[in-house]
Design a protein around this nucleic acid. Sequence first.
DNA 1: AATTACTGAGAAACCGTTTTCTCATTGCAT
DNA 2: ATGCAATGAGAAAACGGTTTCTCAGTAATT
Lengths: 338, 338
Amino acid sequence: MASLSSWVSSERVTIYDVAKAARVSTATASKALNDSGRMAQETRDRIKRVALELGFRPNSLARSLTRKRSFTVGLLTNDTYGRFTLPVMAGISEGLIDHGVSVFLCAVEDNSDLAKTHVEAMLDKQVDGIIATGKRIDKPLPVDLSGLPVPVVYALTAGPSDGVTLLPDDRQGAAEAVRHLIAQGRRRIAHITGPSDFKVVHERALACAEMLSAATRAKDMGTLFGSWSERWSHQAIETLWSASEKPDGIFCGNDQIARGVVDALRERGVSVPRDVSIVGFDNWEIVAKETRPPLTTVDMNLKELGRQAGLALVRLVNGEAVEKGVWKLPCSLIVRSS
Amino acid sequence: MASLSSWVSSERVTIYDVAKAARVSTATASKALNDSGRMAQETRDRIKRVALELGFRPNSLARSLTRKRSFTVGLLTNDTYGRFTLPVMAGISEGLIDHGVSVFLCAVEDNSDLAKTHVEAMLDKQVDGIIATGKRIDKPLPVDLSGLPVPVVYALTAGPSDGVTLLPDDRQGAAEAVRHLIAQGRRRIAHITGPSDFKVVHERALACAEMLSAATRAKDMGTLFGSWSERWSHQAIETLWSASEKPDGIFCGNDQIARGVVDALRERGVSVPRDVSIVGFDNWEIVAKETRPPLTTVDMNLKELGRQAGLALVRLVNGEAVEKGVWKLPCSLIVRSS
DNA sequence: AATTACTGAGAAACCGTTTTCTCATTGCAT
DNA sequence: ATGCAATGAGAAAACGGTTTCTCAGTAATT
């Protein structure tokens, strides 16, 4: 438990205090502490030592005012419930603190006016840039962020084609999943997934189909679109198991479906993974780890995605070149027992 | 879709520009725009009009520097995965934006050094106050926030006894749940809940027992402690249904358990809600709404809790009196079909 | 007519840093 | 000795606002 009790003392130490104590001007003090300007190394060291002794911490506000750089960015999200956004946000926060950058959190639901209010507040507070994040990669936030005086990065939400957008590589993740099933010796592979109006559903289904058509040894038993629910899993298994030829490997659109599939198979006396191998998607630990057997699944590395989004924004703020368009970040296969 | 394209134009308008355009000094301009100082109403109106025409937006940094008030607070969380924190954070963000206050998001996991870094960064940025939030009401954040030069409020995490802490009223929520079961005409009520080392488990179990011992018509069939899993639900139902006298109402420690209970009962041919009524806890919509029948459950109003936390902090910052100790915010019973 | 009270507005200081000049001093080569 | 470049440090002007104080002018009172 870190103690921060040094701040108990009353008034903040300013650079004037440091300068006075070190018997130099504030100009010299500032330069010494920022390793800029020219002065005797001895002077620089002395000033730094004094600053340390006095517990000097520069006032960010004052610094930002002159530097015209606030080391602050805004994070706009329309997700106040889901479980995908939190890791992304955490990744952003963690990735940026290393650069001394703080993050303004703005939760806007789908309220366009609220979003506008937040953006204005952020701009008033002189953010260096903005990150937009959401819950679906095929829906934009309820506010147009183009034409702002600061750069914008989109993470896990739809952005404009000329912007920088970071998304998980659903196709690669799905491909890994199917490859794993094949590597496990599975030959008849089906895909049970969610509603067809989700973009991720298509991406994953497409990659699954491609992978299977390229595979010489394995056969594609088809894709079943439904909903993100265990109920749907039961229906889907009902359908698949009423056919004569049954799959021995199932790739599921998410962990919830996978969980339902495992349960449905158990009810039928089909053993997982002996008779059928299952791979989920999301690595939603509360589901994946609790399933018996624990689910093999695909992790979207959302925290890393957030971190990358933060770093990309910092690069943009610094005027460095950043490739426009959609960046697909790799997913990882988490092998458990299913 | 709100358009913010007005910012496309190059340079920001400062109060100097407004003053010049209105042919007054910056002092007068400032006073006019802040409705402070003394001047002819006509002058005030004219300056405001000019400011509006020019699209003047005061630079928050500059303002904060003199006012010694940044209209910014820090939000510290150790939750980067769970589903409880996000609504709390959203509530905080939404509650504070109305006061012109922005929120710094700091995700610290259980890393004490990282937490300290974040706190220092926030203090450097002159936050007016800090909100600590987490995933469990019985675990504190990995950093000591007492003795800071700014006020602190704790929401959904353990705080010091002399601080301000906001928590859901688990007891009241549990009592509502049991009251509902009794009102439904249930007479033999059991409680199936999670691990006994969670404080919320005890709170809810205690309230449940109290409610039942006070009820003349209903009988307490006991509490079963287990884990937060559907697996445990099946076990618990196995246990309860192996006794001669079976419950006709079950209050579950969370929705996941409730979901498992509904499923386990269905497998036994017991109808919900005809034979047995079920009430869950959390109103975890993805589970509660998907269950067949949809779960009646207790909502902790986490967003409102976040909002209240934000408002409490603002009051502290303003030097207004705020009652120390733990504030329990009411839960709401969400009646669905179970 | 002289004094007093009030009104409206501006000058200047300030918040805490950074940064651009300026300048005295020193060391070195001519 | 003289000129010149390099060095070390400070004065002052930003940054964009707010606030205190001053003061000229007008209105009201004696």
